[in-house]
Design a protein around this nucleic acid. Structure first.
Length: 425
RNA sequence: GGAAGGGUGGCCGAGCGGCCGAAGGCAGCGGUCUUGAAAACCGCAGGGUGACGAGCCCCGUGGGUUCGAAUCCCACCCCUUCCGCCA
C-alpha cells in the first residue's frame, strides 16, 4: 500500500509512476475521498471534543446532586449528529482503503522503463549452455521415459497441471529441497521456518495477493483460508502487526512450502512438463530489513539464489524487470532464469523482489531503531531459492545422456544417497 | 463438533456506566544514595492520527443501548481446559 500522504502531497509523482507501469490507478478518486474523509473527521472530532467536555459536566452535576436533564437533552442532538458523521467516515474510509489496496507499488528509480516483458534487461550470465552431440529431449519425455515423472496419473488423481513424482524422481525433488535449505541456513545465515500452507484473508492482503489477485488462488470452501501461492505469504505475515527491535534486524528466513496457483488465464501456456503446475514446491527466502539497507539486501538475496544454480552447475542469467513487469507489490525485481534446452531459452526459476515498505504498511510490520524511538515500517524482500520443480526440469534436461539416463549433479549426490545417475528402469 | 472458562499497556493483573488511557506489581529508562553493584527511595515511561502542540481514537473484532461504555446487550474471532473425532 502506498502512503496516503505521498499521494496527497505528490500526486503527480505517483501518477507518473503509474504511467511508467502502464497502470491506470484511481489517483483522482483517492484524492477526492481523502479530502472528504479529512473534512468529515475534522467536523466529527470537534463534536466529540464537545461531547467529552459536556459529559464531564453532566457527571459533575450529578455528583453534586444537581439536575442535568436539560444538557442531556441538548447532547442527544449532538450525539445523533456524531453517529451520522461516524457512519459517513466509516463508509468513506472503507472505500478509500479498498482503492488504496488496488494501487501497485512505485518502481524504484533504477528500474528501466518498459511496456512489456520484452523490455526486461539482462544484467549478467553465468555458465555456458551445453552443446549436445545428440538430439536432447524435453524433461517431460526424459522423466516419463525414466519412470520418475507421471503426468497422466497426476491428471487422473487431481487434474491437468498436477504431476506425480516416483522413485528417484521423488527423491530428487526431496533432495533439492534439503540441499537448498541447508545451503541457505548453513552458509547464508537464514533461519529455517516451516509455515502453514494455508493462510487467511488478512495475511493474503498483507503481502498483496488480495484483493486484486483472488482468482489466482485456491480457496477453501466455507472457510477464510486460501492455499498459499508461495511461502512468502505465511512467512512475511509472521511479523504482521508487530513492532520489532531494531537490533533484531535484518531477519533472514528460509522456508520450504508447497505452492498452489490456480493459473487462471494461463490456458495453453507451458502445458507440458513441470514448468507451470497447480501445485509445486519452492524454497523461499524472506528478509525484514532497515529501509536504508534494502537495496544492498536485494543484491545479496539474488546472489543467494544464484549460489544454488552455481552449485548445481546450471547455466543461467539474471534479468531485471522493467516497469511493466516488476510485479504489483515490488519496487524492484530480479529474475534468475535457468537455461532450459527444450525451450531453447532461459526460463524463470526464481524471482527476487524488494517491496520497500509496501507490504510492511499493508501488514503493519514495524521496528524501533532505538528502544524509545518511534516505530518505522521495515522493508521486506523475498526471493525463490529456488523453485524446485523447475530445478528438476532443468537438471533432467541439462544433465541428460544419450541413453536416456540423467547424471546427478555432484552437489546433490550426498542428498541422493550417493547416486550418480538415474537410469531407465 | 460439544461443554466450561478467558481475552485489559512489554509481561502479570485490578477495574461499581461518569472522577479510567486505565490501580498495583514486574521488567525497562533516568536520578538520589554507594568506592562499585545490589537494595531502598524519587521520577519517566503504550499505539495511531496530527505539526513529537491541542484535540480525537484505541481495553480481541464488529455492531448496538446510553447524554456518556473497558464496564450493559448481540454477533463473530482467538486462546485454555475437558469430552468426542482423527494423522
Amino acid at each position: 500500500m502506498l502512503d496516503i500522504k505521498l499521494i496527497r502531497n505528490e500526486p503527480d509523482k505517483v501518477r507518473e509512476a503509474m504511467r511508467r507501469r502502464g497502470e491506470d490507478a484511481p489517483i483522482d478518486e483517492v484524492l477526492a475521498l481523502d479530502e472528504q474523509r479529512r473534512s468529515l473527521v475534522t467536523e466529527v472530532e470537534q463534536l466529540k471534543a464537545r461531547r467529552n467536555q459536556v459529559s464531564e459536566e453532566i457527571a459533575r452535576a450529578k455528583r453534586a446532586g444537581q439536575d442535568a436533564t436539560e444538557i442531556i437533552a441538548a447532547m442527544r442532538e449532538v450525539s445523533d449528529r456524531i453517529k451520522a458523521l461516524d457512519d459517513q467516515v466509516r463508509d468513506v474510509e472503507a472505500r478509500l482503503e479498498q482503492l488504496l489496496l488496488t494501487i501497485p507499488n512505485i518502481p524504484h528509480e533504477s528500474v528501466p522503463y518498459g511496456q512489456s516483458e520484452e523490455d526486461n534487461v539482462e544484467v549478467r550470465r553465468w555458465g555456458e549452455p551445453r552443446q549436445f552431440d545428440f538430439a536432447p529431449k524435453a524433461h517431460w519425455d526424459i522423466g516419463t521415459g525414466l519412470g520418475i515423472l507421471d503426468f497422466e496419473r497426476g491428471a487422473k488423481v487431481a487434474g491437468a497441471r498436477f504431476a506425480v513424482y516416483r522413485g528417484a524422481g521423488a527423491r530428487l525433488e526431496r533432495a533439492l529441497i534439503n540441499f537448498m535449505i541447508d545451503v541457505h541456513t548453513q552458509e547464508h545465515g537464514y533461519t529455517e521456518i516451516w509455515p502453514p500452507f494455508l493462510a487467511n484473508t488478512a495475511s493474503m492482503t498483507g503481502t498483496g495477493q488480495l484483493p486484486k489477485f483472488a482468482e489466482d488462488m485456491f480457496r477453501c470452501q466455507g472457510e477464510d483460508l486460501y492455499l498459499i501461492p508461495t511461502a512468502e505469504v505465511p512467512v512475511t505475515n509472521l511479523h504482521r502487526d508487530e513492532i520489532l527491535d531494531g537490533d533484531q534486524l535484518p531477519i533472514y528466513y528460509v522456508a520450504y512450502s508447497a505452492c498452489f496457483r490456480a493459473e487462471a488465464g494461463a490456458h495453453g501456456r507451458d502445458t507440458r512438463g513441470l514448468i507451470r503446475q497447480h501445485q509445486f514446491n519452492k524454497v523461499e527466502l524472506v528478509k525484514f530489513v532497515k529501509p536504508e539497507d534494502s537495496y544492498d539486501e536485494l543484491e545479496k538475496l539474488v546472489a543467494d539464489a544464484e549460489a544454488i544454480l552455481q552449485r548445481l552447475e546450471l547455466p543461467y542469467r539474471v534479468t531485471m524487470m522493467c516497469t511493466a513487469d516488476v510485479g504489483f507489490a515490488a519496487a524492484k525485481k530480479y529474475d534468475p532464469e535457468v537455461w532450459m534446452p527444450s525451450y531453447g531459452r532461459y526460463v524463470e526459476i526464481s524471482s527476487c523482489s524488494n517491496f520497500e515498505d509496501f507490504q510492511a504498511r499493508r501488514a503493519n510490520i514495524r521496528f524501533r531503531r532505538h528502544p524509545k524511538a518511534k516505530p518505522e515500517f521495515v522493508h521486506t524482500l523475498n526471493g525463490s531459492g529456488l523453485a524446485v520443480g523447475r530445478t528438476v526440469a532443468a537438471i533432467l534436461e541439462n544433465y541428460q545422456n544419450p541413453d536416456g539416463s540423467v547424471t546427478i549433479p555432484d552437489a546433490l549426490r550426498p542428498y541422493m544417497g550417493g547416486m550418480t545417475r538415474i537410469e531407465p528402469r
